[in-house]
Computed example of a mutant assay.
Amino acid sequence: MSYLEELVRGKRYLNRWLRYRLAAPRVPDLKRLLLGRNVVVVGSAPFSTKVHGWDDSFRVLTINASQVAAEAWLTQPPDVTLMQFNQIEGPNPAAVEVRRVLQHAKTGLLCVLNWRHELDRLLRGLDAFDYRYDELMLISRHERMALMHRMTGRLNLELEGEGKWSNGIVGAALAINSGAANVILTGIDPLSKGHKYNSLNLSRMHRETDLQALQIFSEQRLPVFTADPHVAQSTNLALWPVKGSLGFNGHAALTSRAGAPT
């Protein structure tokens, strides 16, 4: 990287850091839905697993179109869906596929990340592919950054797309911060390629940052597990269920991080 490039990047970093500090964003949580619950976070990696012990007492959080990956065992719409802003109107093939497979589908609480336009435009966009929901919530970029800062201890200013946390990792962090008893990931594999709901075979972004987050969750003994044996093997994340136990107590784990930065 040249001196000029370093200078430009440093200026961008400082500008974004100041904007983040001035915004003083809240840290989002969904305690009213997820507190004390076993929460399954479903991603869109090509391979996913029905969670051991699954029943209707579990809460389900899906990412973009990943509810399609769980349709074989999901008996009702997911409780929460995180959807990236560009899925609503984006012309790229991946966004077009998301809208196609979610047409006429439904979720409970729809959380749209980083929407930058007026609300009416968002509602029109969702109506265009008839995606329905019981509640709608917007989570800004700064709020997402604050959430990940709290749960990892690292402030990621998202200067490059590859350096961001994936929405699957954000979903896991949101569940932990909401007091989930256990968070079980399926279809979330930083080392995979492609998506369950399309045949585009697109490379997965955020590989290094996601592996870093999973390592932090594990080191902090947060109640995060994977239901996918190959992911447990490749990431050292604990496989659900832990032998002889249903996992950690989420409240105790959160208490141990009471001093984490906000």
Score class of each variant (00 low, 15 high):
Asn177His: 11
Phe248Lys: 13
Asp120Cys: 12
Pro46Ser: 04
His230Ile: 14
Leu147Trp: 04
Ser48Met: 07
Arg37Gly: 03
Leu113Pro: 04
Asn249Glu: 15
Glu162Pro: 09
Ser218Glu: 10
Ile184Gly: 06
Leu239Asn: 02
Glu6Cys: 12
Val112Arg: 02
Leu102Tyr: 02
Arg221Val: 10
Trp17Lys: 13
His117Asp: 11
Gly90Asn: 02
Ala128Asp: 09
Gly247Arg: 02
Ser2Val: 07
Asn177Lys: 08
Ala45Pro: 03
Leu222Phe: 09
Met148Ala: 00
Ala258Thr: 15
Arg154Ile: 14
Ile216Asn: 06
Leu254Tyr: 05
Trp165Glu: 09
Val60Gly: 03
Asn236His: 15
His195Trp: 13
Pro229Arg: 04
Cys111Ser: 10
Glu6Phe: 12
Met1Leu: 15
Val101His: 04
Asp189Cys: 06
Arg221Tyr: 13
Ser234Asn: 11
Ser203Ala: 11
Ser140Ile: 04
Gly43Asp: 00
Leu61Trp: 04
Arg100Gln: 10
Pro223Asn: 01
Val224Cys: 03
Glu71Thr: 08
Leu222Thr: 06
Leu61Phe: 04
Lys164Cys: 11
Ala65Tyr: 01
Leu246Val: 13
Leu138Arg: 08
Leu30Glu: 06
Leu222Lys: 09
Gly36Gln: 08
Ala95Ser: 12
Gly161Asn: 14
Met137Thr: 12
Val8Cys: 09
Thr226Met: 07
Ala172Val: 06
Arg132Thr: 10
Leu211Ser: 06
Leu159Gln: 05
Leu119Phe: 11
Tyr20Arg: 06
Leu159Ser: 02
Ala95Ile: 02
Asp134Leu: 11
Glu208Cys: 10
Gly171Thr: 01
Ser218His: 13
Glu135Pro: 07
Gly194Ala: 04
Thr62Tyr: 04
Ala172Lys: 02
Val42Leu: 15
Glu6Trp: 11
Trp115Ala: 00
Gly43Gln: 01
Asp29Pro: 05
Gly194Lys: 05
Pro28Asn: 02
Leu138Ile: 06
Leu4Ser: 09
Gln87Ser: 15
Ala128Thr: 06
Arg141Gln: 14
Trp165Pro: 09
Pro223Val: 00
Ala227Met: 04
Pro241Met: 02
Leu123Ser: 05
Val40Lys: 05
Leu136Asn: 04
Gly187Lys: 01
Gly179Ala: 03
Leu159Met: 05
Met1Asn: 15
Val27Thr: 09
Pro91Thr: 03
His195Ser: 15
Lys193Pro: 07
